[in-house]
Every structure is written in C-alpha cells, then in structure tokens.
Design a protein around this nucleic acid. Structure first.
Lengths: 189, 189
DNA sequence: TTGTTTTTTTGCCATTTGGCAAATGTTTCT
DNA sequence: AGAAACATTTGCCAAATGGCAAAAAAACAA
C-alpha cells in the first residue's frame, strides 16, 4: 500500500491515523489481463488505485468498433467519475490490459472517508482535477497530429507501456487502423 | 448577473447573502472579438464566466500552426486551471471569437470567496469536474471519427455556434485543413 | 459606391490512410 | 511437439485528406 500513501501525500498532508483509516477501507484485488474492473451499462460502485499493471477505458462506437479512450498506468486512480458521482450508468468498460494489482474502495467506504477525514475532500478534488486535466492534455494533440507523430508522441510519453499492450488497442487509441499502425512502425525502424 | 446565479445554483444551494457576496466580487467586462482574455506565457490571474458570446482556447503547435483546442460558449466558466491553480505560465491563449460579455473574478476575490463561503469549494469543484469531463467527452470522438463525421457531430452539438465562427478556427478544432472543411461543407449541401 | 483586405471555395495533383484478404508470426492449450 | 487461436505484417488498390495557388465571395474601410 506504500504506493498509494506516497501518491496521496503528494496532494496534501495527513497524519498517520488518517492514513491508517484510509488504508483500512481499501482492499487489495488482482485483476487478470482482459478482465473488467467496470462495465458499460452498470453504475460505477468502486474507486480503484492501480498498484501494478495497465488498464484501459474503452467503448464501442456506433459502427460497433471498439475504441480505446485512454490507458491508465500504475499509480493512478481509476474510476468513471460521471457514473460514480451521479449514479448513472457508465458508457465505458474499464479493462485490465495486463495482469493488474489494485486497491479498491467501495462507494460506502469512500464516502465514509469523505465524511470522517477533514481535508480529504480537498485532496480528492486535487487528485481528480489533475487526472482530468491530464486526460484532456493527452487526448487533445491526437486530433491535430498525423498518425506517425501520434505514435512517436505516445512512445515518448509512455516508453514503458508500448511493449505491454496489443497493437489493436493502441491503434484505436491513436485513431488509426491496425494495418496503418503496423506500417508506421515499419517505417520508423 | 442572473445567468451566473442560475448556473451556480445548479451545483449546490446558497443563501441570498452568500450569492450577494459572490456577485460583489465579480466584475462585468466586455471583450471585443479577437481580443484576448488570457495569453500564453502569462499566469492566469482571473476566472471568467461568459454571459454572452463565444470564446476559444488555442495554442501554436511545433510547426507554428494555430490550433483551436476548444470553444467555450455562454454560461460557462473560462479559466486555465493548471495555470490559475499552480501559478505556472499558461500554454494557451483564450480569445474572444465573437464580442463577449463576461463576469470576471480576480484571483484574490476568488480566494476570498473560497475562504468565506462554506461549501463554495465543493460547488466550484463540481463545476470544474463537470467542465473537464465535458472537455474530454467532446474532444475524444474527434480522434476516431472521419472528418465528415466530426463536422456533422459538431453541427449537431453546437447548432448555434457554427455560423458565428470563422472556418479556420473550426478546421483546426476538427483537426483538418480549411480546404478540406470547405469541401466537406460542399458535399453535405 | 469603389477599392482593399480577408475569408472561403475550387482545381490539380501528391501523400496519407483505409479496406480487405492472405501470409506470417506468436501465443496458448493439450 | 503439434494444433488451434490469435496478433501482426504485408500487398494491392481505393478513398480521404493535404498542399499549394488561383479564383470567387464576403467583409471592411475610405
């Protein structure tokens, strides 16, 4: 759980008692590659923190194509905020891309922390804002760059991810076809 | 200021005194078409709420091309959060696309509200989360759709914006060239 | 109105990317 | 190891988009 504690303390200070309380609400869980942490059509009921592994958020577009919206790496929260906060059905799947180890908080446990620990809500706000800003920042350049540039940027940004994920996931994330991505790889070598 | 009050009250309850305090910190300002509300390289020092008009956030990519990252319409907050919160230089310009009327809060006034009004931070957080989630939701489909679909989606989503903005802004927002966008328009008619 | 400037459209052709299917390579399971 | 399932690469050609420059249209100013 050390990773989670370090992560949280970046965003604000907590005493040992508060940290222990937080950890007491978290439950460690393993998720096998390709298994789902959350599914479209269901209401998100848990907040996860990835200790090890890579997950992805994906959905099916109106042509039935599976689109990877983003990847989430180690040391990040994973939750469909819109669904979790508002109790509405999620439109995305959250799937383990590699075998993952995560810490899970139930909605109930999470709420208890918010009610109990003074300042926890502020920390959570900061974490969430940062994550959302990061999502926008990562997704935006993909619109204007050409395919090769997108791939190179991804490599630069996630050097340790690129060899752990299937090409098809990456292609849909970058907004290109598998074959195009394969050709781009070839040209770069 | 009625618009601002309605907007805020969607996210939480406040009494009249609190509302008056908020409004007292806001200052009405007009921004002429093409003028800037905020500039790249400067630290964001104000939060704005657009009463009337359309603004856009844009930057110059490494080829020197001007890219519109998103449009912001009436009844939305406008602020570069990363810059405003962390005191770092902004990487984007915020520019009026049409003549705009906005309500402006200085960083100082904004902070005073946060310090004074209990629950205001929660409301602000909700507003910001929603806005960020919306940004991701709008930007994401642009990656995977083809150019014509992007344009049609934009038209559907912003029917009352499309005729108020120059083609060049829209093209860079959609990630295509002006000429392509012009041809797409032609084919649709 | 007239002339000037800016924006948008269009033509021509090059380049990029997609679609499909077959071939090759890799993983998984027994 | 061998077979089956799955992932990636490749070839071929079609379709989409870009680049550039000129023409047309629209907006603006005198």
């Amino acid at each position: 759980m050390k990773e989670l504690v370090n992560y949280i303390l970046q965003f604000g200070n907590l005493n040992q008692q508060q940290i222990d309380l937080i950890l007491s609400k978290g439950q460690e869980r393993e998720i096998r590659k390709e298994k789902y942490f959350a599914e479209a059509g269901k209401v998100a009921a848990e907040v996860g923190f990835i200790i090890d592994g890579i997950m992805r958020v994906c959905y099916y577009d109106n042509k039935g194509e599976e689109i990877t919206k983003y990847f989430i790496e180690e040391n990040n929260l994973v939750v469909d905020l819109e669904s979790f906060d508002n109790g509405i059905c999620s439109s995305c799947y959250v799937q383990a891309v590699t075998d993952c180890k995560i810490i899970v908080f139930s909605k109930k446990g999470w709420q208890e922390l918010l009610d109990t620990i003074i300042g926890w809500d502020t920390i959570v706000h900061k974490i969430i804002s940062k994550a959302l800003i990061q999502k926008v920042a990562r997704r935006s350049p993909l619109v204007s760059e050409d395919a090769t540039t997108r791939y190179l940027s991804f490599m630069k940004m996630f050097p340790n991810v690129i060899n752990r994920i299937p090409l098809s996931y990456l292609a849909s994330y970058l907004g290109i076809t598998q074959s195009s991505l394969s050709r781009i790889r070839k040209n770069i070598r």
